[in-house]
Amino acid sequence: MNEFPTPIATVPSTSNKTGGWRTFRPVILYDKCIRCMICWKFCPEPAIKIVSAEKYQAKNAAIAKLDAPEIDYDYCKGCGICANECPVKCIDMVFEEKLEG
């Protein structure tokens, strides 16, 4: 309980790692990715971060200049919107058990 006389929510929800909900894991195939950020745009968590261009290899020099999407598996629930919306179909949805096995 906090000092307030009524419950006031103050703790960021980031302490709740919703990655554990996931059945299918989206995996970005960076060699195909065009870094259009449509996956980032439609992520309902949001669990797709924007990372610096150099972090991943790119398809070509023009794309390599763009910041890249990166999935935050701590929070990704595996809904698959990113894979469905990806215009170049570079996100695979992989069954988690297989990954663990």
Partner: peptide, 21 residues
């Protein structure tokens, strides 16, 4: 940024806040 009046579970401090009242 704070949330006023959010959901409290039975094991959460619902009763305690009523007791404060």
């Amino acid at each position: 940024p704070m949330g006023f009046g959010s959901l409290v579970m039975p094991e959460g401090p619902f009763m305690e806040y009523k007791f404060k009242g």
